[in-house]
Design a protein around this nucleic acid. Structure first.
Lengths: 203, 203
DNA sequence: TAGTAAAATGACTCGTCGGTCATTTCAGGA
DNA sequence: TCCTGAAATGACCGACGAGTCATTTTACTA
């Protein structure tokens, strides 16, 4: 008997899909798309291989789903934060902190996203999802930058290039952290990257 | 009869290895390690599959060889340039220009390198080669930065973080270019990234 | 508790691809 | 031109993993 548009069956089914997705994220994060096997995912989720196919129709579908979840969450978090008040510098710091925090909490997602980014040049027509995250994020920064230029807080440089640079730098900080190159606290990494973006290296 | 330590056979063999390597780079660049097949490489090199195995003992060996070539060339170019005279800003511009130029001339290598970078988080113990390039490059920038700090040209920030940031930014410019996001000339991209690193975005 | 429909299982199939090797082609010396 | 060893070839093998489906288990209801 349907309640709120969802039958009991739907709820259980959604729960199972989520369990599988979590397992999948862990496996894909650790092994990458190709080296991860459906058996790995099934084992991690403590179900049999066939069960996986009751909820997802292919390996690719699970993978894309795992990516989509993270992409949508991150983008929506950033969009919310970008709306608030404050100077450009304050907002820049807030966005950077949000992004770094999100990746910190979702490293499995980060690894998948990052490796997919690495494949972009090879398969340019490949993953629109990933290009999307990249572009939309750059757009968020671009809006901030334009506002800053209008308010004379920010230099009048090529906005697109600046936004990509900021998107890249904030992502790369997470890479340092994931690879264990940075042993600093999240806050101090955030402070550094914001300062770097803001003032550069020149004395 | 050996001349300069190399028999005629060695020369021919080296030539063939090189032909294969070029084909391999093209294929790996386009398809990535997993999707590239030995048959692809053989076809591109216009030889039969078996011939590939006369010169390389495995798919992995060809791949690593293709990576190593680029890594060693780039690092040695950068090292040479880093030795010259000039202010820090001048040297920074020179290094950036060299790196961007190298990637521009060796896009196949760039794609392989970049996708391998993407896999680093998943296989942290994986490719020492790639970590190496990353580290050694950061080291080159770090030396420059230390000198600049001593000379009061550069702010006294965390040198390691600055050098990673610079290494990342200069690489990411190439990504923009490869993906077709940047339509600017190589020079104007170089100018931008140097200016960004030097002065930041603040007015 | 018996009956049944849905959910879960895992042995199996089938295509792909890295790697091998018996056979063929080639090159160059006599 | 013939001979011989090296180089090249591509049909073939075996492993592996995505995806299937006949069978079993579970969960619910009457």
């Amino acid at each position: 008997m349907p309640v709120m548009g969802k039958t009991r069956k739907d709820v259980v089914s959604e729960f199972r899909r989520n369990e599988l997705l979590t397992a999948a994220r862990a496996v894909f994060s650790k092994k990458g798309f190709h080296d991860a096997t459906i058996d790995d995912i099934a084992e991690t989720a403590e179900v049999a291989k066939g069960t996986v196919y009751l909820y997802y129709k292919s390996k690719k579908e699970i993978y894309l789903e795992a990516l989509r979840f993270g992409i949508e969450s991150l983008n929506s978090e950033l969009n919310v934060k970008a709306e608030g008040p404050g100077t450009c510098l304050e907002k820049l710091r807030l966005l950077a902190a949000t992004k770094l925090g999100f990746f910190e909490e979702n490293r499995d997602f980060f690894n998948i996203y990052y490796s997919e980014l690495g494949k972009l040049p090879s398969h340019p027509a490949g993953l629109e999802l990933v290009k999307d995250l990249y572009f939309k994020q750059a757009k968020i920064f671009a809006r901030l930058l334009k506002e800053g230029i209008r308010r004379r807080e920010i230099r009048n440089l090529n906005v697109e290039k600046m936004s990509f640079a900021i998107a890249d730098l904030t992502r790369d900080v997470t890479t340092q952290r994931v690879l264990g190159f940075s042993k600093s606290s999240l806050k101090s990494d955030t402070d550094f990257v914001v300062d770097f973006i803001w003032k550069g290296i020149a004395r």
